[in-house]
Design a binder for these strands. Structure first.
Length: 428
DNA sequence: ACTCCACAGGAAAATTGGGGTA
DNA sequence: TACCCCAATTTTCCTGTGGAGT
């Protein structure tokens, strides 16, 4: 029996396409329209090579403006030039987002051997901290810590983490550590504690959004590295650039679109990528983003989202918190899961709103009370599908739903004005 | 002006669970 | 094994609030 994977492999071989240059993890060699930023970074970091201490750097710019790629690129060059005397530690603060986890991560990055690694939990913060100081002292290298999405740290615990890390850079015996912070928000430094700000914000570099022309240059540059039999029409390339430019000058989006368009063309056996493929790619992109964010959700968030979907469908209007909670409890009962309290549900609904999976508006109906009206903006059915793909929800067959028939002050038919509120919200 | 609904959201207590230590 | 420490997650308790009804 032929291996079905082999078959797929053979089917694709004639194309001989290698699109890895367009993948999100690829760090290119050329950064069109970013010469100035690279130059500033190199200048700032070059004092390390003269055995001095580099100033801490802050990189500002919207997503997809090259901050992460360029800092990876520059620090890699630095590491090579340092010939083993420089250690670069890259931390994504969205994932590693507490003082504790960052310190543990740092300590483990400075471990040469596995047995030196410390457990991700259990130690006291003090113990991890002094361990870090010891390691910094022992390490005869200059350490550069890149904190990507550094704003997430402030969001969570108001800058304490940053203070601790900065303190570690001073407490380390030779103080041979500097920090590169990366953030999406220009106002990031304003919210900082003064003692943290002065030390962190020693030098800042701004990454302006790319415009459509610049994005086109970037795409062309990347295309140069592609071995492909697929021809990308200029109009398609321009469209990718234009969509990226509309999204606050997002190069990542433009590149992703180009890659997906090419993948679509290849799969459909076409030799040219035109505007139609780009539009298809944009749709796929959107649904993929939704799917991924749903799959990453914890169980109870999924159940709540399911409850929102079902409540909304059942009542044929946006659902409100009380209803969602009632139906959520029923779903939990159905699948034999202990339900969470009301307060927590309220919080999870806010989270879902932040992610963008639901849209909610708080509205007061006078005596009818004040509540959030919640709606799943798009693709309701596919969202429901994705939720039900969860293993723990596989036993879910459906439940008897409830809806509040008459919310005092709100007739069932008068949800028209609520729709209006949603519509005006979305145009913000 | 005052009431009162049905929540929102802050603060603090309680629970959970990994990991260390005696 | 029993027990302590700690961080993270949830619950409990609470005060606050927009605006229709009175």
């Amino acid at each position: 029996m032929a291996n079905p994977f082999e078959k797929i492999n053979q089917e694709q071989t004639p194309a001989m396409d290698d699109l890895s240059v367009l993948s999100s993890s690829y760090v290119p060699e050329n950064f069109p329209h970013r010469e100035q930023q690279i130059d500033s970074m190199v200048k700032s970091l070059s004092s390390i090579m003269r055995h001095g201490r580099a100033s801490n750097l802050l990189l500002y710019g919207k997503s997809g403006t090259g901050k992460t790629s360029i800092s990876r690129y520059v620090t890699q060059l630095l590491q090579e030039a340092g010939k083993g005397s420089i250690k670069v530690v890259y931390i994504n603060c969205q994932i590693t987002d507490s003082t504790y986890s960052i310190l543990v991560y740092l300590v483990n990055s400075l471990s040469e051997r596995d047995e030196e690694r410390i457990p991700p939990m259990g130690w006291t913060l003090d113990r991890v901290y002094s361990e870090l100081i010891t390691r910094i002292g022992q390490m005869k290298k200059y350490i550069v810590v890149v904190l990507d999405e550094i704003d997430k740290l402030i969001e969570k615990n108001g800058g304490d983490s940053l203070y601790v890390i900065l303190k570690a850079s001073d407490d380390g015996k030779e103080a041979n550590l500097s920090i590169i912070g990366i953030t999406n928000y220009t106002s990031f430094a304003d919210n900082l504690d003064a003692r943290v700000r002065s030390r962190l914000n020693q030098e800042s570099i701004i990454f302006q959004p790319y415009n459509a022309t610049q994005l086109r240059d970037i795409l062309k540059d990347r295309m140069g590295g592609i071995v492909s039999h697929t021809v990308v029409e200029d109009s398609a390339l321009n469209l990718c650039a234009a969509i990226g430019a509309r999204e606050h000058g997002d190069a990542r989006k433009a590149i992703d679109l180009l890659r997906i368009s090419m993948e679509i063309a290849i799969r459909e056996g076409k030799s040219r990528v035109g505007e139609a493929e780009v539009y298809k790619a944009r749709d796929k992109f959107e649904t993929d983003v939704i799917k991924e964010s749903i799959m990453a959700l914890p169980l109870h968030s999924k159940i709540i989202l399911l409850s929102v979907v079902l409540s909304q469908k059942f009542a044929n209007r946006p659902a409100y918190t009380g209803e969602v909670y009632e139906n959520y409890k029923r779903i939990c009962e159905e699948i034999s899961v202990q339900n969470l309290g009301f307060r927590r549900i309220s919080e999870i609904l806010s989270d879902l709103d932040d992610i963008g999976l639901i849209v909610s508006v708080t509205k007061s109906m006078g005596r009818g009370g004040r509540t959030r009206f919640i709606r799943v903006p798009d693709h309701i059915d596919s969202i429901e599908q994705h939720i039900l793909e969860d293993e723990q929800l596989s036993t879910f067959k459906g439940v008897k739903l409830t809806k509040q028939e008459k919310l005092s002050g709100l007739e069932d038919e008068s949800h028209q004005d609520i729709d209006d509120i949603f519509n005006s919200q979305r145009s913000d």
